[in-house]
Design a protein around this nucleic acid. Structure first.
Lengths: 250, 250
DNA sequence: TGGTATAGTTAGGTTAGGCTAACTTAGGTT
DNA sequence: AACCTAAGTTAGCCTAACCTAACTATACCA
C-alpha cells in the first residue's frame, strides 16, 4: 500500500498543509473546511484526499473526518515549517506586512529546497537575533554557514540564551508544533490534537491529554522514554510510544 | 486581437523567458532550442507558442522563427528581472553556489510579486554594496525601505558611485538588457538583437546596429529623442522611435 | 532537379486539478 | 418512525501541459 516515493505537487502540498492547520486549530479536518481554506469546491477536496490517501499520507473513510498518518503528519509539519520560515524571512528581513508575507509565503514555500530553506531560516534568525539597531556582521553569518560556528574572538554574535549556551549559532527553528515524543524538558505548550484511533486515543484523552490543555515538560528520561509532564496541576508519565500520538504546540 | 488581460502561467512564463534568453544570446529563438532549454519535446513548444501568440506576446509564422512583440518583450524582461533578482539574493546573501542559485531561482521567480521583488533586489544590492566584511546596518536598510532614503548623518551607507551621487540608496537594478531607447548617457554595452521586421529592421542593421556590436551612449536629448551613440568608432544619431527596436545588454 | 536530412507541425492520448449537477448519507426534528 | 437538511460523494466535463507517432516543409547538395 501507498506510493510513498513520488514527490507531492504544489497543490497536494497545500491540501496537506491545510488539513494540518485545521487539525491544529480545531482537532478535526472536515471536507467543507478544507474546501473553504483552499478556495475550491468540495468535490475537488474529495479527489485530493483520495490522492493523498493513495500516497499513504492520510486516512479517510467516506463521510468521516480526514486523519493524518504518521508519514502525512511528518510531511505536513515539514511544509508548515517551510511556510513559516519563508514568512518569517519576509517579515523580519524584508519588512513586509504580516498579510503580505503570509500570502507571498504560500507561493514561495513550494519552490524551496531543504538546503536553501535552512539557510533562509538561519538568516532570518540571525537578523532577528541581532536586532534592528545593531550592526549585522554578514561575514560572521557567512563564516557560520560555511564552518558551522561563529569565528573565534567574535564579540557580538547573536543570542546566547538559555537553550543555546554553547557557541554554535542561532537556533534556526520556527517550528509550530511537534509530537510530544520529541520535546525537551522545560518546554511549555498546548495540546493540539491526538492522532491515532481507537483504544490508544481514548486512553490518552482519558489521561487528560485533550485539545487545548496546557502542559509543561518536567523530565525526559534518557532515550526519551518515559516522558513526565505537568498537566492541570498534576504530573503524568507517558511512554514514548504513547507520546508520539500527541501533537503539541509550543 | 490578443487576450492581454490574463496572467501567464508558470509554464508560459518559462517559455517566454527562454525565448528571450535565446534571442539575447543568438538573436533567434528556434523551436528546437526552446525545447532543449525547457527540457520538453518540440510539439509542446509549438503549442506553448500558439498560446503565447494568442495572448499577443509573440508572433509566429509556421516554420519560421519566433518573434517577441513589444508587449512580449516587456514581460519577458520583467520575468528575467525577477529571476536575476532572486538568484542574486541567493548567491550574495545566502551564499549558495552559482548553480544552486540558478536552479532555485527558476522555481521562486514565479511566486514573487513586484513589491516583494523590489525589496529583495534592494536588499541584495544593499548587502553587496556593504561588502562582506563590513557591518551591515539593518536599521539603515529598513529606514530606506520605509522612507525612501538613508537616515541623515549616516556615515557608512552603500556605494555613492557615479550614477547615483544623490544620496537616495542602492541602485536596485540587476537588469540584464533594455531597449536602446531607455538608456542613459555614458552607458556601454552590446547590441543583443533588433526586434521588429521589414524595412525598419533592415535600416537599423544597415546603420551598423548588428548583434554583438559594442556601443557607448554619448548623449541623450531631453525627452530621450534623439539618442547619440558611438559604434565601431563613428557616431550615430537615432530617433527614439527607432531605438526602441534595439535590444541591448549593458 | 530531385533527394534527403532535419526542423516543425498535426493528430490524438494522458494526467492533474479544477468545475457543475445530481445523488447519498448521517444526524437532528417533529 | 419518517423526514429534512447539510455534508459528502459520484459522474461527467473542461483546460493546461505534457507526450508519441506520423506527416510536411525547408534547405542544402549532388
Amino acid at each position: 500500500m501507498a506510493e510513498v516515493g513520488s514527490r507531492l505537487s504544489r497543490s497536494l502540498e497545500d491540501y496537506l498543509e491545510a488539513i494540518y492547520n485545521l487539525k491544529l486549530r480545531s482537532q478535526v479536518a472536515r471536507v467543507k473546511d478544507i474546501a473553504h481554506v483552499m478556495d475550491v469546491k468540495m468535490p475537488s477536496v474529495t479527489e485530493a484526499i483520495r490522492s493523498l490517501a493513495a500516497k499513504g499520507l492520510v486516512k479517510h473513510e467516506p463521510y468521516e473526518n480526514v486523519e493524518l498518518t504518521d508519514e502525512g503528519l511528518d510531511q505536513a509539519r515539514d511544509i508548515a515549517h517551510r511556510h513559516s520560515a519563508v514568512k518569517s524571512f519576509l517579515t523580519s528581513v524584508l519588512d513586509l506586512s504580516e498579510e503580505e508575507s503570509e500570502s507571498e509565503a504560500c507561493g514561495i514555500e513550494h519552490a524551496i529546497r531543504p538546503d536553501t530553506l535552512d539557510r533562509l531560516l538561519k538568516y532570518a534568525d540571525f537578523v532577528r537575533a541581532c536586532g534592528q539597531n545593531k550592526a549585522l556582521r554578514l561575514d560572521h553569518f557567512l563564516h557560520y554557514i560555511r564552518h558551522g560556528q561563529y569565528p573565534d574572538g567574535c564579540g557580538s554574535h547573536p543570542h546566547d540564551d538559555a537553550n543555546h549556551s554553547h557557541k554554535t549559532a542561532p537556533a534556526a527553528v520556527a517550528i509550530e508544533s511537534t509530537r510530544l515524543s520529541d520535546v525537551t524538558p522545560g518546554t511549555k505548550g498546548r495540546i493540539a490534537f491526538v492522532s491515532g484511533h481507537g483504544p490508544i486515543r481514548k486512553r490518552l484523552m482519558e489521561m487528560g491529554l485533550t485539545p487545548d490543555a496546557r502542559f509543561e515538560v518536567v523530565r525526559v528520561a534518557p532515550l526519551g522514554d518515559p516522558i513526565e509532564i505537568k498537566l492541570r496541576g498534576y504530573h503524568l508519565s507517558l511512554r514514548k510510544s504513547e507520546a508520539k500520538y500527541v501533537e503539541v504546540q509550543l
